[in-house]
Simulated assay, not measured.
Amino acid sequence: MSELITARIQAHATRLGLPHLAEHLDLLVERAETDSMGYREFIDTILGEELGLREGRRFRTALKLSGLPHHKTLEEFDFAFQPDLDVRKIRDLAALAFVTGHRNVALLGPPGTGKTHIATALAVAACQAGHSIYFTSLDDCVRQLRAAEAAGRFAKKLQTYLRPSVLVLDEVGYLPCDRAAANMVFQLISRRYERGSIILTSNKTFSEWGQVFTDDVIATAILDRLLHHCDVIAINGPSYRLKDRALSAVPAAVS
Rank of each mutant, 00 (worst) to 15 (best):
P164W: 14
S197N: 06
Q187P: 06
R225T: 08
L200V: 10
I198M: 10
A155R: 10
G173Y: 03
V217R: 13
M184V: 09
L169H: 01
E171P: 10
W209F: 14
I218N: 00
L227P: 02
C177N: 11
K204H: 09
V172Y: 00
L200Y: 06
F154Y: 15
L138F: 09
N183W: 01
S190H: 11
Y161I: 12
H229A: 15
L223T: 07
A221L: 05
D140G: 00
R195D: 07
R191K: 14
L158Q: 06
R163I: 07
L138K: 03
L226R: 05
I218E: 03
K156G: 02
Q144M: 10
L223M: 12
V185W: 00
E194L: 01
R179W: 02
V166S: 12
H229D: 14
V172H: 04
A147L: 11
S137F: 02
E149N: 09
Y161Q: 09
I222G: 03
S190W: 04
Y174N: 10
T220C: 07
F135H: 04
E171V: 13
T214M: 05
Q187G: 15
R191S: 14
Q211R: 09
A181C: 05
Q211P: 03
N203M: 02
D170V: 13
L145T: 03
A151V: 05
I198D: 02
R153F: 08
V142F: 02
A148P: 02
L158E: 05
D178A: 05
D216I: 12
L188F: 05
M184K: 04
T220Y: 06
P176D: 14
D139I: 12
V217K: 15
N203T: 09
I189F: 00
F135N: 00
H228D: 13
H229S: 14
G210K: 08
R153K: 14
T201G: 06
E208S: 10
R153L: 11
I199R: 04
E171Y: 06
N183D: 14
L227V: 11
H228E: 11
N183M: 08
T136P: 00
V172R: 02
D170I: 15
V142T: 07
V166I: 10
I222A: 09
G152W: 04
T205Y: 07
V168N: 06
N183K: 11
L223A: 10
L188S: 01
V168G: 01
Q144N: 12
R153T: 09
I222H: 01
G210D: 12
L169V: 14
A147G: 01
